[in-house]
């Protein structure tokens, strides 16, 4: 059984020969070179690669937070800008980026406030999201009272609050302990299956990438390039048992080989 896909076969994200060059004091940094990638609606894509290989850059390009220096990029059938203006995606940053003056509940409500969601729905919607990440008891706490991992979970709840069609997640679970991380992995997979959202997920963990994804994009650094793409054929729904599947190890080895190849 494969991932739930929407009937159309047009990609929701289309990356063609995409390049990003940053001007730096000592010349230029090629953060991304000639990247090619098609993401179908409802896919769960992981980006994996060494530090500085351009994972964040690729995500920020899709989110229209920076503009490419070359190539073509379509998101949600249009320009990234249009996707952003249609509020088509929720972005989870590498750091929580919470507003220190808002308590947990109000932080999750922030997008609803900005988007003028009917007032009556805001509280219940935010509480629902907090429950999802297991922080319903902390809705009145302020960010400084939470641990780094708890803050990151608030930022995930915030990204989900306005129910975007796509989720861009930049190492969302990097700051979490192993058990919490695995729990949230399961929770994220359940959410993905139930809602059919498209997820682009950055991680440094090979096993996390295999466990979560329909496909894993392996990237290499200097210059940032896509080294290869691995299809993960593990059946859905996945559970802790999936980690014992012999294919799980095959895929992990395949990814590790690609990473090593890029390293040499």
């Amino acid at each position: 059984m494969t991932a739930p896909r929407s009937p159309s076969d047009t990609p929701i994200v289309s990356v063609r020969d995409l390049s990003m060059i940053f001007p730096t004091p000592g010349g230029q940094t090629v953060a991304l070179q000639d990247a090619n990638l098609q993401i179908m609606p409802g896919e769960f894509i992981s980006l994996i690669g060494p530090s500085g290989c351009g994972k964040t850059t690729l995500l920020r390009l899709m989110a229209d937070l920076i503009q490419p220096t070359g190539g073509e990029l379509l998101v949600n059938g249009g320009t990234p800008r249009k996707a952003r203006e249609n509020r088509a995606y929720g972005y989870v940053f590498q750091a929580p980026a919470l507003m220190e003056w808002r308590n947990v509940l109000n932080n999750v409500k922030l997008p609803l406030d900005v988007m003028n969601t009917p007032k009556a729905q805001r509280d219940s919607r935010a509480r629902e999201m907090l429950k999802l990440v297991g922080l319903e008891k902390f809705e009145r706490s302020y960010p400084w009272q939470l641990s780094g991992g708890m803050q990151q979970r608030v930022s995930i709840a915030r990204a989900l609050a306005f129910d975007p069609a796509m989720l861009f997640m930049d190492e969302p679970f990097g700051a979490l302990d192993e058990i919490t991380r695995e729990n949230l992995n399961l929770e994220l997979l359940r959410l993905w299956r139930e809602t059919g959202k498209t997820v682009v997920f950055v991680t440094h963990s090979i096993s996390e990438a295999v466990f979560l994804s329909t496909r894993v994009v392996v990237m290499t650094a200097r210059p940032g390039k896509i080294e290869g793409i691995v299809d993960i054929g593990l059946p859905h729904p996945r559970s802790d048992d999936s980690r014992e599947d012999p294919r799980f190890f095959e895929y992990a080895t395949q990814i590790r080989e690609l990473l090593k190849k890029g390293h040499s």
Binding site: R60, A63, D64, L65, R84, E85, R87, Y89, G90, Y91, F93, A95, A97, M99, E100, W101, L110, P111, D113, V114, M115, F162
Partner: peptide, 25 residues
């Protein structure tokens, strides 16, 4: 900068960025 990026992903108006982010900060 991340907080500003966040507001950008919501397509917040300049007035919203001012009132919801800059003034409280």
């Amino acid at each position: 900068p991340l907080q500003l990026d966040l507001m950008r992903t919501y397509r917040a108006s300049p007035a919203q960025v001012f009132g919801l982010l800059q003034v409280p900060a």
